[in-house]
Design a protein around this nucleic acid. Structure first.
Lengths: 234, 234
DNA sequence: TCTGAAACTGACCATCTGGTCAGGTTTTTG
DNA sequence: CAAAAACCTGACCAGATGGTCAGTTTCAGA
């Protein structure tokens, strides 16, 4: 089910032509943007083709149908999603591991907001295309990592916490800066999120997660309780 | 811009007929469900009409266009959104106030998931219809409540925290149980969220928010999400 | 250079969908 | 109770959209 852009091998195992590789990635990029902006049904093949700078028929030459193109975009995205949890292991330092994970998630929201939006859209609208992935791979991954967090708690290295739901909260809190960027911007009164906005958001989410686990902030200045410069201005 | 189903008055100030009132609400209910499931573009007037049990032409008789129907659904929802923040005042007990607010948000996710999904969809896809609302009403509300939280922090009643971003986190953490219900269910390995799942989720989110603010959990047992008549009630 | 394969595309089509409207029925009102 | 207003709807239409295809161009390898 997973796209194989990394190895660029098609079903027969042969390498894809250079041209095909380059074109495909351009189309996937355009498709991601359009699907993010309009959803599956709202996106049109014509718009995607325009953005990719090719005729519509060419898009159909590469991806047989809109459905197929959508799945390709989705597969491309799922690879991003599962990664990043490796930092969470029993032997790791909880504060460091969680910080690394949250930062990775925030980085993803900042760098690939369209990917996050396509993913969000897919789930809101019933997850018909990735339900299987959620029920198998994602579930297994979460169970494994939740077990680690439970272990940390059992050893008294963090406060007891519902590990599975903690993941839901981390995903929600981080992805909101991509999926709901418009709302965040509107409330902050800015046209878009700057780098420092993202830094502040990251610091905040880290605060939430670490305090939830009863851990002090790791990176930057150690300031578990004292007022932080990040929180003061408004 | 706000729909006036509460007063049932049209633009001229006259009361709407009984028939119109009943029909309209049936159509809005159907529309909310379909828009939630398929998004604005993906929803079809025919499907909404079918679900409402009326011919398509009747739907157009009540709501001139798809756009108009969508705005009506949205307006209906926005009223839900701004409420619930009254509990957050300078004089209130922080723990109690935050608990009340989070519980209210969780209740909304449990009882009106479709409303939440329509809202989510609208924002993900650019917030073209409610951008003004976000930039004005919502922003003002958040600024006011954030000031309260800052005040609490200044008085040492809670730990310092980025108040505005705290709202983003609360919204994200609570609405994820509506918007991303599919993902949550998939990871939990359940076909849908039970009442006890919602209780557990509420307890978790409360833990996150209260620990973030350095507060103890109030009333040992968080108030349960009252048994929801599902998405049915309006 | 030649040749087959891959890449490409303009033109076209079937279908779906939002929207209209003329004419009918029911409800309200004077 | 009659007229007016509100309500309702089958049938229809124009435009948009996903998808097709036959024919052309470009590329890679012998």
């Amino acid at each position: 089910m997973r796209a194989q852009t990394a190895t660029a091998a098609d079903e027969t195992g042969r390498l894809k032509g250079r041209i095909r590789q380059r074109q495909e990635s351009a189309m996937l990029k355009a498709a991601e943007k359009v699907f993010a902006r309009a959803g599956f049904q709202g996106a049109t093949m014509a718009e995607i083709a325009d953005l990719a700078g090719v005729p519509k028929a060419t898009l159909h030459y590469y991806f047989g149908s809109k459905e197929e193109l959508y799945r390709a975009v989705l597969d491309n995205i799922l690879d991003l999603w599962l990664a990043e949890t490796e930092s969470i292991t029993v032997d790791a330092d909880p504060a460091t591991a969680l910080t690394t994970y949250v930062q990775a998630k925030m980085r993803l929201s900042a760098r690939r907001p369209d990917a996050s939006r396509v993913f969000a859209n897919e789930i809101v609208h019933g997850a018909t295309h990735i339900g299987e992935y959620l029920r198998t791979e994602l579930r297994r991954t979460v169970e494994a990592r939740a077990a680690v967090i439970d272990q940390w708690a059992a050893e008294g290295r963090i406060l007891p916490v519902d590990a599975t739901h903690l993941f839901f909260t981390i995903w929600a809190a981080t992805q909101t800066y991509a999926d709901f960027e418009n709302q965040v911007c509107a409330v902050l009164g800015k046209p878009r999120l700057s780098v420092s906005d993202h830094q502040r958001a990251t610091a905040h989410v880290l605060t939430v997660v670490l305090r939830t686990c009863g851990l002090p902030c790791v990176s930057g200045q150690p300031r578990p309780v004292s007022p932080s410069p990040a929180n003061t201005t408004h």
